[in-house]
Computed example of a mutant assay.
Amino acid sequence: MRSFQPKWIIYHVLVGGFVLLLLYPVVWLLMSSFKVSEQIFLTADHLIPDPFILENYVQGWKGFGGYSFGVFIKNTAVFVFITLIGHLISSALIAFGFARLKFAGRGFWFAVMIVTLMLPYEVVMIPQYIIFSQLGWLNSLKPLVVPAYFGHPFFIFLLVQFIRTIPRELDEAATIDGCNTFQIFYRIILPLITPALATAAIFSFYWTWDNLLGPVLYLNSPSKYTVSMALNMFLSNETVSNWGAMFAMSIVSLIPVFVVFFIFQRYVVEGIATSGLKS
């Protein structure tokens, strides 16, 4: 009888309607990828393609400059993997230092790190470009991946809060057993912060995969373009934009995002909501 209560019905109707509202842009994008490019916006109010074509996917996958879209996906995958590893390693080590080690000015430097969360990228964009230009790192992945190995403020904050929930008695017991500081981190802390690391990895994947401004600044050769840059190349201010091919490759680029989300979505909740130890 509980399943037929009015509150239950109203709740699910509202939630279902909200889900449809959120999914409609994605469905519209998918359907538009099968339309003739010239008719996409002329028939924007019609969801079903008429005629239904696959040519947009063929043209989009051909890419441009002699490079197929598969090259751009591979470049992005390499970019994401290297950046993700840097974020996890550096952020975990820095977070352990803030949460467990005592050093002069720890509170001050932690506050400075938190302040950088509110610092827009546009503020440091030009100084960083000048530095990387002088180092000769332009048109390479170095300006995009090297900073990841110096920690990410959001991930550091997340991991610090997670580590603080782990009882210090575990550290003391490990010290009695002869573990040094690094062994405590590697053997005790690191296994317990796996949910938080998984959360950081998911966010790092999303933010890096969608990153457009960074690659646009530092990458000049089409052979090194990422997915976001390749999608942008389908648009033109001088000739007719190939909206169909761009929408088709947008769907292709969304596949890894959806796969990662559906496989690892539970880690997002665990990493943010759970404590370091479970009873």
Rank of each mutant, 00 (worst) to 15 (best):
S275W: 07
Y57D: 06
W243K: 00
L93P: 15
P127D: 05
M125C: 12
L219D: 06
S140F: 06
A92M: 03
A248C: 09
V240W: 04
E38V: 05
W61Q: 04
G107K: 05
L14C: 14
N242Q: 08
F264L: 10
V80F: 10
V19R: 09
V257M: 15
K102W: 11
S204N: 05
I130Y: 12
W209C: 02
Y11H: 11
V71L: 14
E169M: 06
Y267V: 01
P49Q: 04
Y121W: 15
I188W: 06
G86W: 04
A111Q: 07
G66M: 08
Y267S: 11
S33D: 08
A174L: 12
L231A: 06
L84N: 05
A148H: 03
Q161N: 15
P49G: 05
G65C: 05
L20C: 14
F182W: 13
K142I: 04
S3F: 15
V115C: 14
R106E: 09
N211E: 10
A273Q: 14
M233Y: 12
S223Q: 12
T194S: 14
V260I: 12
I73S: 06
R2L: 15
S90W: 03
L138H: 11
F98M: 04
P191K: 02
S250I: 01
S275D: 12
S37L: 00
T239Y: 15
N139D: 15
I40C: 08
L117D: 05
R100A: 12
V269E: 15
G70R: 00
T43E: 10
I184M: 13
A104I: 02
N242W: 00
L119N: 07
P49T: 01
N237R: 11
L235E: 13
Q161E: 13
S275Y: 09
S241W: 05
H152I: 04
G244F: 01
A198T: 01
V269H: 12
F205W: 03
K102N: 13
R106I: 02
Y218F: 07
M233Q: 11
P51G: 10
Y206R: 01
A99H: 04
F18N: 07
